[in-house]
Write a protein that binds this DNA or RNA. Structure first.
Lengths: 258, 258
DNA sequence: ATTGACGTTCCACTAGGCGGAACGGGGCGG
DNA sequence: CCGCCCCGTTCCGCCTAGTGGAACGTCAAT
């Protein structure tokens, strides 16, 4: 993944990026020229010129008293711009397409909204019998693969709250309505990294789903593969592996640091 | 001011910083090589090499389908690192909450970044019609309450520089674009201790803002209260008193000695 | 006073970046 | 369905602009 060396690069730029990363990863906010120079094995002269250049554009600030360097406001601007631009839907779209193409089943994306979750996108395969979900429709967090994938990774106290505040209403005959059973299932989901569901939310439908974490580590969305129950079961394992990988990749691109 | 050219610099690094800033300030998340090349007047080959280098270190991500570029997770890491080291935000948080609770309007915190300022935090009230600002978005120092509160308290020569170097671009129909009028307003702001603005930065929005001084006496941030113009005007005086007190308190806690 | 460590600048060398031009491919309109 | 156009990408020779070892100035601690 990272550290790809394909294509042409510029060493000066690479060094600049390394210097910035040194600040991002440092414990203390101040770093000195020599310190950076030693750590990255770049000559002091170069480190100084890089810092000086970045300073003129507010990416780096310098404390005139101590002559030490720290990150500047422009660095923050970058980070917040990333957050502003990150749109799960855009990023997930190509993944949904790939997932659907590979399995010939329906791939969906849901986001959490309080005690519910709602579908915000889907890609369906080109075949006669297939599943289609209702975009924008909201479902409680205890029924269905995507729902459980999110619920399982909330803070323990939030899960407790959900269990006590929300009545576990059944959507089908197979919806889990017993808190203890649900808790057990959630633990299993955390262990496996994905949730699976058969006829829980919709009769005749089965799914596997993985959580999507944002930069602060909370599950904000879920990505799933679903289809008609009888045929879907056959490839559930394969689908699970795919969905876990997709969830992980999507989380990374949302800024989640595993 | 910003844009200091003292000392030695590296053009490749400067260009890199400009490219990154292009992403930070862009409205859309995707930017193309040609687009950047034209805007910054850098040859396509160079832009491509810069992006490719940054990509290998996760500062930039590329959509393989569209071949367009966007900010990568490392950019977020930078921003979060900056926040970790800046304590204005932590100190201000409870004040923002109190301000918002008392007035039932939105309280914001901005910091200066060269000739701009950007929102780094906000607390919004629980009501249906309310104002929300875009965190990380940067605005020039002449438009809006928070901007003017900072500008007014810069060193006189820095204000002069700003007026002469920066075109007073209008963001709305009511943005002050006449240098003389702006100077008069700044004087008023210094006299009153707070800045107020109606429809200057955003149509339909009004605000009052106070500067926040660091230990060396320079305005590094601004704290504000803002809301929908018509309803906010009614309690502007009350809000002004609150914001002045908050600004003073925050400055003290940043090490400012009146 | 002396030392050492640090940030900063100097200077000659040459490695490395530069950019105009050519290439390849994907999308859009005809 | 084809051709056109535009975009991202790479090529290649020129030469500028970055490099880094060394020297300098400054400060703090000894």
């Amino acid at each position: 993944m990272a550290g790809d060396t394909s294509g042409q690069t510029i060493t000066a730029v690479e060094r600049t990026a390394l210097v910035m990363s040194a600040f991002a990863q440092a414990d203390s906010q101040h770093l000195g020229v020599t310190e950076i120079s030693n750590n990255l094995d770049i000559s002091k002269a170069v480190v100084h010129r890089i810092l000086n250049t970045l300073r003129s554009l507010d990416y780096i600030a310098v404390d005139p008293a101590t002559r030490r360097y720290m990150l500047g406001p422009a660095a923050l601007e970058l980070g917040l711009a990333f957050l502003r631009h990150v749109d799960v839907r855009d990023i997930a779209k190509p993944m949904l397409e790939e997932l659907s193409a590979k399995t010939q089943e329906t791939a969906t994306l849901s986001i959490r909204s309080g005690t519910h979750r709602l579908y915000i996108d889907q890609v369906t395969p080109s075949r006669e019998v297939k599943m289609t979900v209702l975009l924008g429709r909201s479902f409680p967090l205890h029924a269905g693969g995507s729902s459980k994938a999110i619920l399982a990774h909330l803070a323990p106290e939030d899960i407790e709250d959900y269990m006590s505040d929300v009545v576990l209403e059944p959507l089908t005959e197979l919806t889990i309505t017993d808190p203890d059973l649900l808790m057990k299932d959630l633990a299993r989901i955390r262990r496996l990294g994905y949730a699976s569901s058969v006829n829980e939310r919709q009769p005749g439908a089965a799914s596997v789903a993985a959580p999507v974490f944002d930069h602060s580590g909370w599950p904000v969305a879920a990505i799933s593969l679903c289809g008609p129950a009888e045929r879907f079961q056959d490839q559930a394992d394969e689908a699970a592996a795919l969905i876990v990988a997709a969830g992980r990749q999507l989380s990374e691109r949302m800024g989640y640091r595993g």
